[in-house]
Design a protein around this nucleic acid. Structure first.
Lengths: 127, 127
DNA sequence: GAAGTAATACTACTCGGGTAATAGTGTAAA
DNA sequence: TTTACACTATTACCCGAGTAGTATTACTTC
């Protein structure tokens, strides 16, 4: 089990983000939180959560007849999996290629650039 | 039309990669090329190509009764779309966050790091 | 001209994401 | 104690990726 955490649908990801943020949430809470994005039926969220639980992405406990959901996978694990998947499948594992792509196609603030620079310098020292 | 190029399945991506690499290819060629990975029926490739054409990802012309396929979307456009999608949905658009993730979880060669460093310095100068 | 061969066309099925209506259930309020 | 209300459970679709068997078509070669 614990299959492919690297492929999460958009809605699933949104739900995970809510759970990571709040650490736990009831269905109404999640539904409420996501309403800003797009109109989604309450049952859509509830169904999705049940499917996600079957897939091992979330867990729930019952509290006063309400389902309280929590994430069953950690955010950094998922981010890592998803990013690595893309990196390996699209850029043959070359981080430089990937970043160069982003650099050439997006506006990146000077702050971001500096932050990046620091990160890399740090990393070079360590290794 | 020209919808979501940011979500390509693994097989579709593999096929696109073959086409980008060779610039054009017949079904047997593509099938042959992908055989190293995994056993896939010839018809699987053919069907997939037809579906991809319907989706606007590839085109074909006929040459001596054979379909010669070519990519209908450019590699950099797709890479960009896919990477940006991930960046925006997983890291709220912060390139630094994304890279930091990768840096902390992967072995990156000193060469890659230097390359990255150069890229960023370049970019800072330009802007 | 019949048979073999190589290609495409058609059809079909599974699976998972997404979406939601409807049914059921249990507690709270009137 | 009947009725609302607020949840969860069940069921049902659609869509696209993936996979591939079977049918058809059109050359080639006896």
């Amino acid at each position: 089990m614990q299959k492919q955490t690297y492929r999460l649908g958009d809605l699933q990801l949104k739900i995970m983000k809510v759970l990571w943020e709040k650490s736990e949430a009831s269905v109404p809470e999640i539904h409420e939180t996501l309403q800003t994005d797009k109109e989604l039926a309450y049952t859509t969220i509830a169904t999705m959560l049940r499917k996600m639980e079957a897939r091992g992405l979330v867990k729930h406990r019952v509290e006063e007849r309400k389902f309280i959901y929590t994430a069953a996978v950690r955010e950094d694990a998922v981010s890592k999996k998803m990013t690595e998947h893309l990196l390996d499948h699209l850029f043959e594992g070359s981080l430089a290629d990937m970043v160069s792509h982003l650099l050439s196609s997006r506006e990146i603030s000077p702050e971001e650039l500096s932050k990046l620079q620091r990160l890399i310098t740090e990393r070079k020292k360590k290794k």
